[in-house]
Design a protein around this nucleic acid. Structure first.
Length: 225
DNA sequence: GACCAGGCACATC
DNA sequence: GATGTGCATGGT
């Protein structure tokens, strides 16, 4: 197990520069995007969000009142549209009943309380909850996604099995609680993932090379990542 | 046509 | 507790 050293962030930031995350307009749009992007290409999510905007329904109350079938029709380009319609409805139900659909009210609560509440909503798991906490509510919570897991495993920083919380602890233990840093760092891992750490790796020019145990990042860890 | 994408819940062993 | 499967569109 290698350490999560500061030069990893430096290498990524030097290679890619600032990523300007989260793309989108305002906290509520970020929350909606966090649900829509589950296992889905961001370009498709943008189409769905644009449909909601064009119909003038990208607000909590409109989504809350909308038929599931109408909603699923609008978010269709994002894929899994029936499930995601339910998940959006579940989230806005919580948001309206708990906080009158107001981000300012939600911000009064502690991070741990909000995380627990979000995880209790059917369709919101750890990555979606943490994305909402970090990118919409500006809490210092590190987001772990498939790319981050894959990159850390392939580069030998995590060896063997690790669940979401163990990956997250790796960052929480060494990083200062800095929202801007968490924001940028996660976005950089996604950028790295898109360019180099896909299931079929394209390792030429990977900025984390030569952290690798051997020579090439075709190295596949025991976890299968 | 095959592969992949900024997950999650649920069934089954 | 670990592993497998359904959910689905759209770009490469």
């Amino acid at each position: 197990m290698k350490e999560l050293t500061p030069d990893i962030y430096k290498r990524l930031h030097t290679a890619f520069g600032p990523q300007h995350w989260w793309p989108g307009d305002g906290p509520f749009e970020v929350m909606v995007g966090a649900i829509l992007t589950q296992n889905t290409n961001w370009g498709n999510v943008e189409k769905a969000i644009n449909n909601l905007k064009a119909s003038g329904v990208l607000d909590p109350l409109s989504i809350y009142k909308m038929d599931n079938s109408t909603l699923s029709g609008l978010i269709r380009p994002a894929g899994y549209y029936n499930i995601k319609a339910e998940r959006l409805k579940a989230f806005v139900g919580y948001f309206i009943k708990g906080y009158s659909g107001r981000v300012s009210k939600m911000k009064k609560r502690k991070t741990e309380v909000l995380r627990k509440e979000l995880l209790d909503i059917k369709g919101i798991g750890p990555e979606t909850a943490d994305s909402i906490l970090l990118y919409a509510l500006k809490r210092p919570v590190f987001v772990i996604d498939a790319y981050t897991k894959r990159a850390l495993s392939r580069h030998g920083i995590i060896v063997g099995k690790a669940d979401y919380n163990e990956f997250q602890e790796l960052f929480h233990l060494v990083l200062p609680e800095d929202v801007a840093l968490f924001n940028e760092y996660h976005a950089l891992f996604v950028r790295l993932g898109k360019e180099f750490c896909r299931p079929k790796p394209r390792c030429d020019g990977c900025p984390l090379y030569p952290l690798l145990p051997q020579e090439l990042c075709h190295h596949v860890s025991p976890t299968g990542w």
